Amino acid sequence: MDIGSLQRIAWDNKVLKGYNTTDLPLEFCMLQEKAAASFTAWRRGKEILGEELADIVLYVSSIAEMTGLDLQHEVKEKVDKNAARPD
């Protein structure tokens, strides 16, 4: 699955389930909560770390959709920029 497809699937699921699609500050707060939950899962050696990290990706995808960004394009641009930096 590419990032663009993931972004659309995550968004369609939010719409279908009636989840937040308009409150951007709330979405950023939920992203922070998921990042904290991921850290806690890692620190405690819990098996749900992968699930928590996946939640982060889904929240980031939703934020990109809410702000009209093509996340796949943005990630590619950033990867290229990082690759071009001197060591």
Rank of each mutant, 00 (worst) to 15 (best):
D87M: 08
L69C: 11
V15E: 07
R85H: 02
T22N: 10
K81T: 07
E33Y: 01
K14Y: 03
E27P: 03
R43D: 15
I48N: 12
R8V: 14
D80G: 05
T21P: 00
R85M: 08
G4Y: 06
Q32D: 10
L71P: 09
K34G: 01
K81S: 14
R85D: 02
P25W: 02
L58K: 12
G18S: 11
I3P: 08
E65K: 06
G18Y: 09
G18F: 05
Q72C: 08
H73D: 15
L24K: 02
K76Y: 08
L31Q: 08
D55Q: 05
T40F: 05
R8Q: 15
N13W: 04
I63N: 07
N82E: 09
L6I: 14
G50M: 12
R8F: 11
V57W: 06
L6S: 04
S62P: 00
V60A: 13
D70E: 13
S5N: 08
E52L: 06
T67C: 10
A83L: 14
I3E: 08
L53S: 04
L24D: 01
S38K: 01
Q72R: 01
L69F: 14
E65A: 06
M1V: 11
K34L: 12
A54S: 13
S61M: 15
E77S: 09
Y59E: 15
T40N: 03
T40M: 10
A64G: 11
A36M: 15
V75Y: 08
G50T: 12
A10Q: 07
S61N: 14
T40C: 09
Q72D: 12
M1Q: 07
K17C: 07
Q7R: 00
A41G: 04
V75R: 06
I9Q: 01
I48L: 10
E74R: 06
I48F: 02
K81D: 12
D2V: 03
L16G: 05
N82A: 05
M66Q: 05
R44A: 04
E47H: 11
S5E: 15
A84I: 06
E51V: 12
K81Q: 13
L16I: 03
T67Y: 03
L49N: 02
A54V: 08
G4E: 08
L26R: 01
S38H: 00
N20A: 03
L69M: 13
K34R: 07
S38R: 00
N82D: 04
S5L: 13
L53V: 15
M30R: 09
D55I: 02
D87W: 03
T21W: 05
D23E: 07
D2K: 03
R44C: 06
K14W: 05
T67N: 07
R8W: 15
W42A: 12
D70I: 09
E33G: 04
F28Y: 03
P86T: 04
Q7I: 08
A10G: 01
A36I: 15
K76M: 11
E47F: 15
N20R: 01
S5A: 12
Q72T: 01
S62F: 00
